[in-house]
Design a protein around this nucleic acid. Sequence first.
DNA 1: GGAACTCGCCAC
DNA 2: AAACGTGGCGAGTTCC
Length: 464
Amino acid sequence: MKINPNTLDAYNLLHEGTLAFADAEQVGFRVDVEYVERKKKFLTKKILHLEDKFKDSKLYKHWEHSTTNKINIHSHEQLSHFLYKVKKIKIEKRTATEKGSTDNDALSQMNIPELDILIRAQKLKKVRDTYLEAFAKEQVNGVIHPFFNLHLPRSFRSSSNSPNFQNVPIRDEESKLLTRKALFPRKDHQFLELDYSGLEVRIAACYHKDPNMLKYIRDGYDFHADMTKEIFMINDFDKSIPEHKVLRDATKNGFVFPEFYGSYYKNCAIGLACEWGKLGQGKWREGEGISMPEGTLADHFINNNITSLKKFENHLREIEKSFWEDRFSHYARWKERWWNLYKKKGYVDLFTGFRCSGVMGKNDVINYPIQGAAFHCLLWSFIQLNKIFKEGKWKSRLIGQIHDSILIDLHPSELKRAIKLIKRVTCVDLKEAWSWINVPLDVDIELSPIDGSWADKEKYYLAN
DNA sequence: GGAACTCGCCAC
DNA sequence: AAACGTGGCGAGTTCC
């Protein structure tokens, strides 16, 4: 399969985008090298301690006696053999090659306390070896220059490497602090991050024009909350209750987005129940799962007569049915039309002048045009802002981008002007340049204190 | 000693 | 009929 610029505008977008990214790469951002070294040592100590603790356990002794080979406790292959062949634990989750999985969820489900030590050690190793180590390795005179690529992703999004700027932890608080506290703007500057809210959902709506979806977007209504109420059977949903917020995140990332990307109720049910809800695969027992305002998730489900994964699956099947047949029927019909169009012509075109052709599956045909065009909106904004900053001799600079957000190394004196400019370029100028955008666009803005780290960014509320 | 593969995990 | 889209990267392992 291939995706090519099919118009001069499309070509120019990539050309100018590449040049704008080169500007950002040149600036880069500062790494607190001393902090990185300190935290690496700190983590090494912690990891060693956890490893010792694990090796003192009964489980490890058993493992030792079961083999004559030298054991590496971080080898998933060896661990898999021990758990599934020696201890004969029933395989609940399999890898892509059908072998017994040893990922976090699989290990958690076994309810073996020693494995929690291993999970914890693996998490700290990830932070140390993937992020802190990369920052230390890639920095030159205390500055890293992550690359941004436009020629690699099939969907015509972007990628980043050396180091990868686009996957620094943010959801897990501990990992977030350990990594992002190492990254700073230039001296006396601060980070400003702008984020298109719901960009892909909005760009999808430009293709399918589903009236219900357009209404949700135009009214700024929280439809993830609606879905949360349905899936978890909560009538008094309140986003400010932490437990409810967790369920909303689960709904958004474990049902709504997967459904948009082409997943279906069975996979969503497993993900929601096991990975998000921390429930088992079979019948649920009281006291199981993440906590709710009253009791646990299993308690809540059992009260509502959903007593097992199987029953939850049926529940989700009904929700999926109404999701596509009632709530977003126009969206569903567009998917079919779009797929048929591809089968007839052998290609589909993006709004932005790119063409996808060659062998694609149904999900690809539906996803690439949406993801690609959504990213092109970000790219267009990136190019314009970069141009204005440079030509206007601003002290601020664009330094990075993560698909629907842009990171700016801001000089504090330019804050007000910058925000005004950002709002205009991203939400007004873009729509004027590309008339196919028939939905309102909106950006959220986050700001870190002057000389604050990337971990210190906070939502910025415009004073009226 | 390096390429290629698998698995796992981080982001959107 | 099929069944979550896009990446980068580290560790372990096997093959050449």
